[in-house]
Amino acid sequence: MSTPLGFVRSTVGRKVMMAVTGLMLVGFVAGHATGNLLVFKGPDALNAYGALLKSSAVVLWTVRLVLLTAVGVHIWAALTLIRLNQVSRPVAYAKHVPQASTLAARLMRAGGLLLLAFIVFHLLHLTTGTIHPGYTFSHTDVYSNVVSSFQVPWLALVYIVAMVALLAHLSHGVWSFFQTMGWNHPRFNTARRVFATVVALIVSLGFIAIPSAILGGMLR
């Protein structure tokens, strides 16, 4: 029962895997948001940053592979647990009133799926350039891609909505991370809640700042 396979099969083990991959992804989005904010320093800064990321194919693909695996594991664990949780109560209550759970917690599933769809969209939009409504996509001029796309209101709105979903997802996910890893202590629980909310806010507001600024005409 104490084999690695047993761990992966257990609900607790899968939650730990979600927590660990979740942490990796939080690290990634935090880094991503920080890099993106270079857009406010102008085209040169952002494009140089973009070029830097692509300077080594080995590093780039290693990072991509790691991230992809993390996303894959995160989603696989989530989907199998969701399936289990759905069958665990075959007859629903006629009346069930949540007493304690936060909205963020209850939105984890829907929000997670929304984010998955968004990631695909985002890759098609700003990585491969497959989606480029009304402008020409450039593989080197990241700045112009960003500014041109977010001048399209619906596109900006898609990003803003997705980042609100990210806010909710992270505010429960980061808090949940500690619980799942077993770090719950009455003396730190308030701090844990605050930390999760602050991380979620910083990351998502960091992202939201960019389409908002472009839409508002501050960046062009």
Partner: peptide, 19 residues
Amino acid sequence: GMVTQMDLEGFGGCTNYGE
């Protein structure tokens, strides 16, 4: 042992709702 048995019994997993 207890976690394994809990899973075998067909209960769902924890999503930290706090209900």
